[in-house]
């Protein structure tokens, strides 16, 4: 039953570009999909390991910048790099983000709770300042332009449908990775730490290892989202580090249901597509924001655990 739903859903999603020949909607879906990947990655850290990282966009931005720079090549006083194929650049972006995740994970072990929130916010700010000021490398506010699209096995990911499929594939992979992790020893250790750390330690859960694993995987995944974004939009500037993007990811995870697999997808679809949906009805931007805000408050107020847990409860109640 559940498997049938999943397959049907995937078929609809995979064939979408064929029966929905609207570049604008496809664009909205691509960007939403990229945000959903970021939300899935945040969910591992926030929903399962219980660490509120308000700097999650840093990993996204690092993935975007690192991938762009490797694909464009650069020539700074210390180091010269010839342009590399985009797939290699994307892997570099993922690795760079993962490495930063490792660093933050080590720090998270020392500072927990409110302090971790502050560390994570400061981290984004530092990275953003680097992106603004290291003009020789990043072009600063002038942005990195003409970022090449991915081309792999003779396919160029220049058009919208191919990008759509690429994002869908990465989203499915991210989902599956998180699912495997949380349904295993590693995920149980994360949940245990989030729910009762002293008890988790008493049965042998290693706090550092567990948190580092969560942050590395989460950061690498957010980096992949950033890399996808960079090679799709093909321009990256320091605004990728804006706080509002982290907030958007957090909203997606929290409203969808943190610590549930489907949560970031449902939350991501709603809050990713909503602004565009409202715009389609030519509702004024101010009103759009009010609707967005009210909806968010309503979800958090009436369904504090999120939409997915509430739906599950309703389904169980029905059957």
């Amino acid at each position: 039953m559940k498997a049938a739903f999943t397959i049907a859903g995937l078929v609809v999603l995979a064939t979408l570009p064929w029966w929905l020949d609207n570049p604008y909607i496809l664009h909205v879906l691509i960007v939403t999909g990229i945000f959903i990947i970021a939300a899935i990655s945040l969910n591992l850290l926030l929903g399962y390991a219980g660490q509120l990282s308000l700097g999650h966009v840093a990993f996204f931005g690092i993935g975007a910048y690192a991938s762009s720079l490797v694909s464009l090549g650069f020539d700074i006083s210390l180091l010269t790099l010839k342009p590399k194929p985009v797939w290699m650049a994307m892997l570099a972006g993922i690795a760079a983000a993962g490495l930063c995740g490792w660093l933050i994970g080590r720090i998270a072990f020392k500072v927990r709770g409110a302090y971790f929130v502050i560390v994570s916010i400061s981290f984004v700010e530092v990275v953003r300042l680097v992106a603004v000021n290291w003009v020789e490398l990043t072009q600063g506010p002038m942005a990195l332009n003409n970022i090449p699209p991915l081309s792999l096995l003779g396919i160029s990911f220049l058009k919208k449908p191919s990008n759509y499929w690429l994002v869908l594939t990465v989203a499915v992979i991210s989902y599956v990775l998180v699912k495997r992790l949380v349904q295993s020893k590693a995920g149980r250790a994360m949940v245990a730490l989030a729910e009762n750390e002293p008890l988790a330690r008493s049965v042998g859960v290693d706090v550092t290892r567990t948190l580092v694993l969560a942050t590395v995987v989460s950061a690498a995944m957010a980096g992949a989202a950033g890399a996808l974004y960079a090679h799709y939009i093909r321009i990256v500037d320091p605004d990728v580090f804006l706080f509002i993007y982290t907030v958007t990811m957090v909203i997606m995870v929290v409203t969808g249901g943190k610590g549930t697999l489907a949560g970031p997808i449902i939350g991501g679809l709603i809050f990713g597509l909503l602004p565009e949906g409202l715009r389609a009805f030519s509702i004024k931007p101010e009103i759009q924001w009010i609707i967005y805000g009210v909806l968010m408050l309503a979800v958090v107020y009436f369904l504090p655990a999120g939409i997915v847990p509430a739906l599950k409860r309703r389904l169980r109640w029905l059957s």
């Binding site: 990775l177 495997r180 992790l181 295993s184 020893k185 590693a186 149980r188 250790a189 949940v191 245990a192 729910e195 009762n196 008890l199 988790a200 049965v203 042998g204 859960v205 694993l213 995987v217």
Partner: peptide, 27 residues
Amino acid sequence: VFPNRSALENILIGLHLTSKQSPFAIM
């Protein structure tokens, strides 16, 4: 206890040290 987990999951967490799974094998 781990209040929001089932009794069985509580024990599974308790079996952390018994379990042999590397992150790569899991992924």
